[in-house]
């Protein structure tokens, strides 16, 4: 989003389209992101969570309480990601 954009009082929101650049950082390497479990509040890198993949999809669980953080299913032409168990993701840029 353009941070130099001027404040306009009658523009409460813009299109989500403007998030593209900011969200792009989350695509670079999500596994390094620090993830807070919505169930128990424990934080840690996604890369250190528990991945179960002997299953119809890939299920990532909290290493502390084993609640489902996210689930990724591959339909071939469609990738489905649910993130019910994630309260917060933090990406640190060097």
């Amino acid at each position: 989003m353009d941070s130099t954009q001027e404040y306009s009082p009658d523009q409460e929101h813009v299109d989500g389209n403007a998030l593209a650049g900011a969200l792009d950082q989350f695509v670079a390497d999500l596994t390094s992101a620090d993830c807070m479990c919505a169930g128990c509040g424990t934080s840690g890198p996604l890369a250190a969570a528990l991945l179960y993949r002997q299953a119809p999809g890939m299920v990532l669980r909290c290493p502390s309480c084993t609640a489902v953080l996210l689930c990724l299913t591959d339909q071939g032409d469609r990738q489905i990601l649910t993130v019910d168990g994630v309260r917060r993701l933090v990406i640190s840029t060097p």
Binding site: P56, C71, T73, Q75, T82
Partner: peptide, 21 residues
Amino acid sequence: GFWETNGYNMYGDPWREERYW
């Protein structure tokens, strides 16, 4: 349910290959 939310078919008849939505 769980897999049905994550992309799998609501019914899941293998003979009609109802794998996904």
